[in-house]
């Protein structure tokens, strides 16, 4: 049997495409975080030279290929209202605060509320306390942050973009959770394909057996 992709062309194996939105007050280090994550092993064939605001990353997690698109947002309060047009259709959100800035943690709480209200449980939330290199100036207690995260069904991470700490784990973990969510969705929805995000992923086939060799000697050969 020979199969030709009609749309997405992802006939061989499986590739997940996830959109992750990066939210948080200005100056908490959202951009550095993602730059650090992507620049280390940034080996993308895209012509993406714009950098910084939109980044992609390709991962292979236990044989599952993941294409990650990371959307940075402007964090200043005056831009808050623009949030929805960025986070719509996201599979995951990374909510970053600065551990030395109590206020930025408050902003994270606002985002959590808004995201849960707008996107429900479909979206995987990560709450990230950044700048742990400035532990001495910490103003947000670990205890408080972690219990808050738990209470809203989010995961909490400690990172330092400066020292490149905790960042790999954060994204890896998020990807695994998004894969799980996607699998649950797929199982639950069966043929339906109307969940946000997934609808645009094109054809996805689980390659769970070796593809039968095409017997089509020339049956589809082009002229």
């Amino acid at each position: 049997m020979a199969a030709g992709g009609g749309g997405g062309g992802a006939a061989a194996g499986r590739a997940y495409s996830f959109k992750v939105v990066l939210l948080g007050e200005g100056c908490v280090g959202k951009t550095s975080l993602v730059l650090r994550y992507c620049e280390n092993k940034f080996n993308d064939k895209h012509i993406t030279t714009l950098q910084a605001s939109f980044l992609t990353k390709k991962l292979n997690i236990g044989g599952k290929r993941v294409n990650l698109a990371i959307w940075d947002t402007a964090g200043q309060e005056r831009f808050h209202a623009l949030g929805p047009i960025y986070y719509r259709d996201s599979n995951g959100a990374i909510l970053v605060y600065d551990i030395t800035d109590e206020d930025s943690f408050q902003k994270v709480k606002n985002w959590v509320k808004e995201l849960r209200k707008m996107l429900g449980n479909e979206i995987c939330l990560c709450i990230v306390g950044n700048k742990i290199d400035l532990e001495k100036e910490r103003h947000v207690s670990i205890q408080e942050a972690e219990s808050y995260a738990e209470s809203v069904g989010a995961k909490h991470y400690h990172t330092s973009a400066k020292q490149n700490k905790g960042i790999e784990e954060l994204f890896l973990d998020l990807c695994k959770r998004m894969i799980e969510t996607a699998q649950v969705d797929e199982r639950a929805k069966g043929n339906g394909s109307s969940q946000p995000g997934a609808a645009r992923r094109g054809v996805q086939i689980i390659d769970d057996e070796p593809q039968a060799q095409s017997g089509g000697g020339g049956c589809c050969s082009s002229g």
Binding site: M1, A2, A3, G4, G5, G6, G7, G8, A11, S193, S194, A199, R200, G202, V203, S214, G215, G216, G217, C219, C220
Partner: peptide
């Protein structure tokens, strides 16, 4: 319309 997209089409040839 996006969710009804016509992208989920697969051409299968059988010999």
């Amino acid at each position: 319309p996006a969710s009804h997209s016509f992208q989920h089409l697969l051409r299968v040839a059988y010999q």
